[in-house]
């Protein structure tokens, strides 16, 4: 998906994911805003977050790495 990535639902709320956090399959990791709609990007499998590559409000494209799991 092409759009702008956001790490939290809005600026006043904590981010969806933190390094070292254990996430379950289906948990929301980031939001990508494309064409005025916010699309939830969910974890495809359970695991521990090793690194968050994407920055808040950064434009992203197909094939970009967003989050790396351990």
């Amino acid at each position: 998906m092409v759009g702008v990535a956001y790490l939290s639902a809005d600026p006043s709320t904590p981010p969806f994911s933190k390094v070292g956090q254990h996430v379950k399959q289906g948990d929301v990791l980031v939001l990508i805003e494309a064409m005025k709609t916010f699309n939830e990007i969910k974890a495809t499998k359970s695991g521990i977050i090793k690194k968050i590559v994407v920055l808040n409000s950064q434009p992203v494209e197909y094939g970009d790495q967003l989050i790396i799991f351990e």
Partner: peptide, 8 residues
């Protein structure tokens, strides 16, 4: 190129 910033 249809931009991602505006209405669909």
């Amino acid at each position: 190129r249809i931009p991602s910033h505006y209405d669909s």
